[in-house]
C-alpha cells in the first residue's frame, strides 16, 4: 500500500515568466500514483501553462519537474511522451484526414523512428489493442470513419483513446468534457474513473459537478500560484477559493 502512495510527479518551485509576466509562480505540486487530481481556477490562473510545462510545450524559467526519477524540464517533447506522460489538448487534437483506426494506430507506441515507421506491420496484437481501446472510448463501430466527421464529443473521446493506447503512467487532460452533451459527460466521467485505475491523471476542468464526480483531490490555482489544495469538500468551503473563483 505504501508503494501506491508514492509520488509520481513532483513539481518544485516552478516558475515561467513571459516577458516579466509570471504565468506560473513558484509552484509546488505533487501527484501520487493512482491519483486523479483536478486543477481548477479562474481564467488565466495558469492551469494550461502547468500542463504545457510538464509535457515540454513551454519551457520553464526556473524550477524542476520530476516524473518518477526523470527531470522533464530539459527533455525534448517526444522523450517526455516516451517516458510515460500523455497529454490531451483543450480543443480536440486529432488527425481529421485519417480514420479512427489510423488515428489510434499512429498513437500506438511502436515504430516511432523513421525505420520503425517504414517497417511497421499491423500485427494481431496491435489490432487487438486498437479494438480494445476503441470499445473503451465508445467508437468501436466507427473504426473506418474519417476522424474529421466525428461529433465534437467523439473527437474528445478519440483523443483520450489515442493517449490510452500509449498506456501512459501520467495522463493529463485539458477540459475533457468541454462542449459535450449531458449524456456524453456522464459517459466521460465513467470513462475517466475506469482509466484512472493503475495510473495518475491530472484533469483541468471548469464544470464543478463533473469535478465532484471524478476528483480525488483538487488543486486551486490563482495567478500562477497555489491557492488551495485538498478534497473537494474542504476546497469548496475554503473562503479564499470562494472569493476568487467559486463565489461568482
Amino acid at each position: 500500500m505504501s508503494l501506491d502512495k508514492s509520488i509520481v510527479l513532483a513539481i518544485e518551485d516552478l516558475t515561467v515568466s513571459f516577458d516579466g509576466f509570471k504565468a506560473v509562480d513558484s509552484l509546488n505540486l505533487y501527484v501520487e500514483r493512482n491519483e486523479l487530481r483536478v486543477i481548477i481556477g479562474p481564467n488565466g490562473a495558469g492551469k494550461t501553462t502547468v500542463l504545457d510545462l510538464i509535457c515540454g510545450k513551454t519551457r520553464s524559467t526556473t524550477g524542476s519537474i520530476r516524473f518518477k526519477d526523470i527531470e522533464l524540464t530539459r527533455l525534448p517533447e517526444y522523450r517526455i511522451v516516451q517516458a510515460g506522460v500523455g497529454r490531451k489538448f483543450q480543443t480536440p487534437s486529432i488527425y481529421e484526414n485519417l480514420s479512427v483506426y489510423e488515428n489510434l494506430e499512429l498513437s500506438y507506441p511502436a515504430g516511432r523512428g523513421v525505420m520503425g515507421c517504414l517497417t511497421f506491420k499491423r500485427t494481431e496484437t496491435i489490432r487487438e489493442r486498437i479494438r480494445e481501446i476503441a470499445s473503451m472510448i465508445f467508437l468501436d463501430d466507427q473504426m473506418e470513419t474519417m476522424a474529421g466527421l466525428l461529433s465534437h464529443g467523439q473527437k474528445q473521446w478519440l483523443e483520450i483513446g489515442m493517449l490510452l493506447i500509449q498506456d501512459p503512467e501520467l495522463l493529463m487532460l485539458d477540459e475533457p468534457v468541454a462542449g459535450m452533451s449531458v449524456s456524453e459527460r456522464e459517459k466521460t466521467a465513467e470513462l475517466l474513473n475506469r482509466i484512472s485505475a493503475g495510473r495518475s491523471v491530472i484533469v483541468i476542468e471548469h464544470d464543478m459537478e463533473f469535478v465532484k464526480r471524478i476528483a480525488h483531490k483538487v488543486t486551486v490555482l490563482h495567478q500562477g500560484k497555489l491557492l488551495a489544495e485538498g478534497n473537494m469538500e474542504s476546497v469548496q468551503h475554503n473562503p479564499k477559493v470562494v472569493e476568487v473563483y467559486l463565489g461568482h
Binding site: C55, Y78, R87, Y95, L106, R112, G113
Partner: peptide, 12 residues
C-alpha cells in the same frame, strides 16, 4: 494535419 499531436504522441 496536427504537428503538435504527432510530437506529443512520442515522435521526433
Amino acid at each position: 494535419d496536427k504537428e503538435d499531436r504527432v510530437r506529443f504522441s512520442g515522435y521526433d
